[in-house]
């Protein structure tokens, strides 16, 4: 076995790096994750081995080396558990953020970087948040920054055709530039159909 806890540290380091890069979502590092799990299993079997060899000794004889060794293995299991959970948890944080930034449906290129269980979590999170917002009858994902101007200038990216804006029918043709209220624009910007245009 390599140095105790080294793999776990690598896993945490990766989570830390991933947190620093906001614009991309990394795939689940299954290789490293499995290695840490395997290492933890080895620690545990060593621990059991040590435990079985412990003889009840008189205090005068000093401490049983099996006990000391067992402690080291036990701490290593705990440490790896911590690292594994930290890695998983850091990813969950990012996954939750995806729901706020991109909405209830993930684009394919991001979804494929989530593990199957993570996709289940995303779905569960999205449902929980969705039903909360539904209950309070307020969409919390818009308005992320304090509003300066109630209107924004936008450029149309996707072809939206005729859209009812502010109770008036407007045709949003690709590349055309419009003024519209921020609350109406934001969901469409999130979906990538419009972009804020800073003329």
């Amino acid at each position: 076995m390599a140095m105790f806890g080294k793999k776990g540290a690598e896993l945490v380091r990766e989570a830390k790096q991933a947190q620093a890069t906001v614009d991309q979502f990394r795939p689940f590092n299954k290789d490293l994750f499995e290695q840490v799990i395997k290492e933890t299993e080895e620690h545990y079997s060593h621990l059991q081995e040590r435990m079985s060899q412990i003889r009840i000794s008189e205090p005068s004889q000093g401490v049983d080396p099996n006990f000391v060794g067992g402690c080291a293995q036990h701490r290593s299991v705990l440490r790896n558990k911590r690292c594994l959970l930290a890695y998983v948890n850091a990813r969950l944080g990012k996954i939750q953020q995806l729901r706020w930034d991109l909405g209830a449906v993930l684009p394919d290129d991001i979804a494929e970087n989530l593990s199957a269980t993570e996709r289940t979590f995303f779905q569960g999170y999205s449902d929980a948040l969705g039903s909360y917002m539904n209950d309070i009858n307020l969409d919390l994902t818009v308005d992320a920054t304090p509003p300066k101007d109630p209107y924004v200038q936008i450029r149309v990216i996707g072809n939206l055709g005729e859209v009812l804006l502010d109770d008036q029918e407007t045709s949003l043709l690709p590349n055309s530039i419009h003024f519209m209220t921020r609350t109406e624009a934001e969901p469409l910007v999130l979906q990538g159909l419009l972009e804020i245009y800073m003329g």
């Binding site: 799990i37 933890t40 299993e41 545990y44 299991v77 558990k81 594994l84 959970l85 998983v88 948890n89 969950l92 593990s115 269980t117 993570e118 289940t120 979590f121 569960g124 999170y125 449902d127 929980a128 948040l129 039903s131 909360y132």
Partner: peptide
Amino acid sequence: YTNKYCEILAKHFEKTVLIRLP
């Protein structure tokens, strides 16, 4: 919301990490 959140969180940790540990 908190109840639902705890539930999915626990499920996720269980499935990814905890079930694999001794």
